[in-house]
Amino acid sequence: MCLAIPGQIVEMLDGDRHYAVVNVCGVRRKINIDLLKNEHLLLGDWVLIHVGFAMSKISEEQANEQLNLLSMLNESDEAIEEVQGYQFDNEKV
């Protein structure tokens, strides 16, 4: 329901700490980063952009983990069991 796409932070605006410049395939836009003020964003981080705001910091680790897991499907019986292990870490609750 909400179009949001990944972009990489290429410039932090010193003059205005509410904003950063992101790059999506060579297209740049100044976006508001207030919604991620607790994430301590750094240059080079990837964020999800929706209506001109950074909504979420993308986790490279989680992305790679998912792709690794899926690439093992069919090849190892454990992989399919792992798919279920994808559940939330309940300790955080």
Partner: peptide, 13 residues
């Protein structure tokens, strides 16, 4: 499709 055209299209749907 050039990267920037793709990027703009992705951003704008």
């Amino acid at each position: 499709v050039r990267p920037a055209v793709r990027g703009a299209c992705e951003i704008l749907g």
